[in-house]
Amino acid sequence: MKNATAFRQHLRTRQLSGRFFVALFLGATLSGIFVLVVLVADVFKDSLGWLDWQFLTSYPSRKPQEAGLLSAFFGTLWLMALTALFSLPVGVGTAIYLEEYSPDNMLRRLIQTNISNLAGVPSIVYGLLGLGLFVQALAMGRSILAGALTLTLMSLPVIIIAAQEAIRSVPEVHRLGAYALGATRWQVVRNIVLPTALPGILTGTILAMSRAIGEAAPMIAISALVYLTFIPVSPLDRFTVLPIQIFNWVSRPQEDFAHLAAAGIIVLLIVLLSLNAAAILVRNRYQKRAEE
């Protein structure tokens, strides 16, 4: 026989503890966001007064008042452009091969597992690969080209996985309709699959780029300079990038350099914010078109 009073008492305890834990879970979730806000506020506060036009247009200098990140900024732009140029075709090509051409055999599974593992390799190991392969073995020196190729290899797994997902989301019936009209496999890919998958592919690439340009470790490993007083004009020039410049300033004991670092961080965050906003815009614009 069930004891109603005991049950109701127990139920109240269960409900109270449930409510307690919800508050705990919510608090935990919000704490992450809270730290994010504190971080951005702190950096912003530290950069006040140091982020000005002179900062954006000067080269680094031993005197904090005269230092700026012009060379690093252009290095980042160069690197981003070249990396996108190399990684987009290779990444998309790999995804197309895996999704549209490859039979489902051991080789395909091997390639797929390999890509997942490559996504988890620490970025500094990619830097070491770049150092041994591009800088030394292929004798490219410590150039933008070597850096871009290194970041390309690092970004490929991310782009491939995003492109594969985009390609997989193209409805099968569209492919069948095209095949039934006598289209060859490449014609189906080029005319049906790629146009439909393009927004997903572009979004994935932009996000991969935004990750790549925030990475200092691999560029340090291939010895991008930390103190550069010219703007690179060719892919064979030496270079530096924003995160390395920031790292350099953070590493110095004088307080003024900390402010420079904060200002540099704001610039970097703005660049990243623009990239991510572009990715969201691309996705929304194409989603609207698909719904028209």
Binding site: I33, L39, V43, G214, A216, V250, L268
Partner: peptide, 20 residues
């Protein structure tokens, strides 16, 4: 918002760790 936490460059986190 949580994804943004993942997207912040690690130099920025390093700065935060050292100075704050």
């Amino acid at each position: 918002l949580l994804e943004i936490l993942a997207g912040i460059p690690t130099v920025v986190y390093g700065y935060f760790a050292l100075t704050f």
